[in-house]
Amino acid sequence: MSEAPPRPEPGVVDAVDAVVGDLLPTAEAVPRTQWQLFRRRFVRHRAAMAGTAVLLLLLVACFGADWIAPAEKGKQDLLAEPAGPSWDHPFGVDQLGRDYLTEVLYAGQVSLRIGLAVAVISTVVGSILGALAGYAGGWVDSALMRLTDLFLVIPQIALLAIALKRFGSSPLVITLVLAALFWMGVARVVRSQVLVIKQREFVEAARAAGASDLRIVARHILPNCIGPITVNATLAVALAIVAESTLSFLGFGVQRPDTSWGNMLTDARGFVGTDLSFLIYSPGLMLLLVTLAINFIGDGLRDALDPQSTR
């Protein structure tokens, strides 16, 4: 039962590295670590690098709005005529005489913050529940997975609308409610990964070393799931930003005076077909850019974290 056939070599590169490492213990030919391999593959992924650049630019612009924005937040110039994009006002001036670029940047703070927070919270919650289900198995697994199914079949928009009416539409509540509806995907992915990894021999070895269940999950199993977890978390950011926009668009999301890209779209909706049509483009474009950038990053991470990848 223990005489398993010898496993195939993990890869020529690894084998050569291992040999070189043995022959030349102090040689400069230091074998590449997993982190270095990952970084190399990610940097070579053009779309992901472009996505990273765009996302960084937007993050800096939005969260640096206090220094970067051309006007003061929400400052109305009642004498200014609403006008389309110009050199002075790249995104134009809205119906209240506000510089629209400034508005978009500050609104981005709210949208991005909600997106990031939802991704972090739902990833942590989903990972913990998924790991628990996969590792414990049995009735714990069944109970948690049925709970996951339950959350998946809930009509989300309806639940969100009710919850936000009940608890108010502050960004914090929106974040928590969205997170409560976002953890299921991560939980399922983590559970399936844990089911595979807990069969691996190093988990048995850790058990033989007297590691407790908590230690085995935290130190041995979850680090081996980091790839799918990261990819899922990344995509959750984009999905959460879009979800927040949808809610705001329907009037349940971020409420004035707070602005987000979603409620800017709502406000601009009424001007479609008039001279002020341009008001709908810039927040929409921001949403598109952020979502695309994050999805490209997710793709790049997936490829870079995949050990089979040959890029």
Binding site: R7, P10, Q34, E201, A206, A208, G210, H220, N224, I226
Partner: peptide, 21 residues
């Protein structure tokens, strides 16, 4: 007891070691 008083060496060290640690 495991790992402290009684310890085990596995056959295939490649699969018995955690690849990401």
């Amino acid at each position: 007891l495991r790992g402290d008083r009684i310890a085990m060496v596995f056959q295939d060290a490649l699969t018995a070691l955690n690849p990401v640690m």
